[in-house]
């Protein structure tokens, strides 16, 4: 049952990712953004299959929720439609596909050859309880540091958003 779910979620995630970056029907950023949301959702499904429930929830909340809303908001704000009017650079597309294909080939062969999962069984239960303990005990300092990072990011955004930015 889980194996079937894995294939479903994984295949859908890859398909949606493909549609995000290379939608053959539309080059609208809005479509890309919506397919990205779907990718996040299927990824969250994969996280659930890996028993990382808290991460799955965070993934939905932060990515599919906050980040994507932000994206859509900006898209609407900027009214980006120009890319549709431009032609593909054939050479650029070819080179891009070759490069990415090469990278994929390298990664895939490495993964297959290394037998990274040989003899390993899925054991870890990423319960929220365990995660919370680790986060507030061993990783307390990074946790607080990340909060500072978020604060700084927020300040930066406020500064950049000022109209009279010079």
């Amino acid at each position: 049952m889980t194996d079937v779910l894995f294939y479903v979620f994984g295949g859908l995630a890859l398909a949606c990712a493909f549609m995000t970056v290379a939608n053959p029907f539309s080059r609208s950023p809005v479509a890309s953004a919506l397919f990205l949301v779907l990718t996040m959702v299927w990824l969250a499904g994969l996280f659930v299959l890996l028993h990382a429930f808290f991460i799955a929830a965070v993934q939905i909340l932060v990515y599919a929720g906050a980040v994507m809303v932000l994206f859509l908001f900006v898209i609407m704000l900027l009214d980006l439609k120009e890319e549709e009017r431009r032609h593909w650079n054939r050479f650029g597309v070819g080179a891009g596909f070759i490069t990415v294909g090469g990278l994929l080939a390298v990664l895939a062969t490495t993964i297959v050859r290394s037998h990274a999962g040989a003899g390993l069984t899925p054991e870890l239960e990423g319960t929220t309880h365990a995660l919370g303990l680790a986060l507030f005990q061993r990783y307390l300092l990074p946790f607080e540091a990340v909060s500072v990072l978020l604060l700084v990011g927020m300040l930066g955004v406020i500064l950049l958003s000022r109209r009279d930015l010079k």
Binding site: T20, S32, I111
Partner: peptide, 20 residues
Amino acid sequence: SAGLFSLGLLGVILRRNLLV
């Protein structure tokens, strides 16, 4: 994961819209 990574890279290389 590798497939997703490659697709992401493809998007960075192919799409000319900064947002995408």
